[in-house]
Nucleic acid binder design. Sequence first.
DNA 1: GTCTATAGGTAGATAGAC
DNA 2: GTCTATCTACCTATAGAC
Lengths: 204, 204
Amino acid sequence: MGQHGQEQGRPDTRTRIQDAATELFRRNGYSGTGLKRIAAEADAPFGSIYHFFPGGKQQLTEETIRTAGAAYGRMVLALLDTVADPVESVAHAFEAAADDLEATGYADACPIAAVALEVASTNETLRVATADIFTEWVGAGEQWFARWVPDPGAARSLAHSLIMILEGAFMLSRATRDREPLRAAGQSMAVLLRSAIEQPGRPS
Amino acid sequence: MGQHGQEQGRPDTRTRIQDAATELFRRNGYSGTGLKRIAAEADAPFGSIYHFFPGGKQQLTEETIRTAGAAYGRMVLALLDTVADPVESVAHAFEAAADDLEATGYADACPIAAVALEVASTNETLRVATADIFTEWVGAGEQWFARWVPDPGAARSLAHSLIMILEGAFMLSRATRDREPLRAAGQSMAVLLRSAIEQPGRPS
DNA sequence: GTCTATAGGTAGATAGAC
DNA sequence: GTCTATCTACCTATAGAC
């Protein structure tokens, strides 16, 4: 159920539009997703999009980036806290990501990645929105790694690396329809974290 | 100069169209790039696109993915061979990538990344083209790492990780307009490679 | 406030002059 | 084989009925 979903039953129209937009942007990107298609998937009349998002496609996209991006970050963090040992937890998180990806026919990965690459050089408002989300994720990841890696710079570098290698692994796994990239990504992150824990003096 | 460029002077029309398409797809993605814009940037008449690429936008895009993708792989490999020590070489390659990215206003990164995310769930022909290129890169990277890492599985995992963390770093650096993600990526790859060289028995 | 119809513009694709 | 004019379909956005 969406963020602003009603207590029970079907989410309200605005929420359905945002949820449908999130799924379509994730699969088809920004330019590849039409507002008519969003309205159809949300089972909402076309005019409702401009009723709830008077700023049009850009406003809807910005809210989608910020809402879905923040939710995705929380989901990954929660996933990392289901296993006690940090190295095992990281490896487990990538396996879970591979399970999800495979279960959705290699469609549902990061909700903002495709849009981020499309707008980075073409739409400053949306570019800043994606940058804010990535920055938020790095900060949250840095705090998580800081529990086991005392050096702040090392924790920050690990957070960057986790996000980057996950995004890259999603790209390769979606393109090749193969779990192997995600598995290799999880192994590498496990090595990096173990190295940072065992050898605090060396750069990571 | 483009792959089929003439011996001297201006490249031929077909090459100019492909080169323009490569740059536009890299910056704006597949759906975000119109054929009229490609013709304009190539300084070619619109009809020439269908003269040289009778299959239309999809054929032009597929050829662009395969040509620019293979060239980009060769370029990165060549960059890795400019420094003798492998760990230093990897770190140097990411610094060079950051220099290039910054010099182009955070626009010119991987030529197929944006298209790959857009078509992965929407266009099977183009999805396969991106998968073929990624697979080609992994194979080439595997051979490069095998020079210093005897275990084939470890070399393959390192190749996957290099490509994935580079793609992820491009995504974050373009979005945030900051070199830091690319720098962190280079440091992490250096740690991974050093770990694989020094501890051949552990997974990498 | 929900929804339909449509305007204005641009997309990919094609026909045909030269 | 180079180039222009145009077709149909779809896009975002808006006007206005209910």
